[in-house]
Amino acid sequence: MLPTPPSSLPLLPALGRASIAAVGNLGAVFLFFLDGLLSGLSSTRQLQRTVLQVYFIGVKSVFVVTLIGLFTGMVLGLQGYYALAKVGSEGLLGSAVALSLIRELGPVLTAIMLTGRAGSSMTAEIGVMRISDQIDALEVMDIPPMAYLVGPRIWASLISFPLLTAMFDVIGILGGYLTGVKLLGINAGVYFHRINASVELSDVMGGFYKSLLFAVLVSTICCFQGYYTHLRRDGAGPESVGNATTSAVVLSCVCILVFDYVATSFLL
C-alpha cells in the first residue's frame, strides 16, 4: 500500500498528476508534429496539396502582412527618431529600425498575424471536419488524415512564414524610411548606410530561424487543436470548434512570445 502524503503537502499529488499530464501532452504534440511532417512527404500528391496551402497561408496573407509591416516600420521610425534625438543620434535610425525588425518584430509580428489569419482557420476547418465525420470518412477511404490535412499545412507554414517575414522586414524598413526620411528629414543616404553597416548575416539568419520555429509552433498547435476537437471537455459540437480555435490562437501567441525569448537568448 502506498504511504499517505503528509497533510502539510495536500497539493503535491495533484501537482504531480498535472505535471505528468503536461509532459504527456507535450510528447503528444511533438509526435503529432513529426507524424504531420513525415506524412507530408508520403506521396507526390502531397506537393499539390502543399502548394494549395502555400496559396492559402502565404499568398492570401500578403496584404495584411504588408499593411502591418508598413505601419510597424512607420511607428518604429517615429518613436526611434524621437528617442535617438534625445541623445543626438538621429542618424542611427536606420540601424534601430532594421535591427528591431529583422531580429524581433518581423518574425514575431508576422507569426502573430498569421496565427490570427491562417492558424485560426486551420483549427476551425479541421475541427469542423472532425465533428462532421469528414476525418472519419477520410480514414475509412484509407486516405490518412494526417497526410491529407496536417502534413501540407505544416510544410506550407515552413515555406510561407520565412518568406512573409522577409517581406515584413523589407516593408517595415520602407515604413521607417517614410517617417524618418520623408517626414522627419533624415538624410536618405545616412538611413540606408546605417542599415548596411549594422545588419549582419547572423541577424538575418536569426530572424529566419525564428520564423521557422514559429511556423512549426503555429501550424502544429493549430492543427492539433482542430484535429482533437472532439476530445475537448469544455464543449461539444460547434461549441468545441469555437473553443478549440480560441485555445489555438491564445496558445500560439503565448508560445510565440515565450519561444522568442528562449530563441533570442540562444541566438545573441
Partner: peptide, 8 residues
C-alpha cells in the same frame, strides 16, 4: 455517414 461527411 449520417450527413454524408462529404469534404466541404
Amino acid at each position: 455517414f449520417q450527413d454524408g461527411a462529404l469534404l466541404g
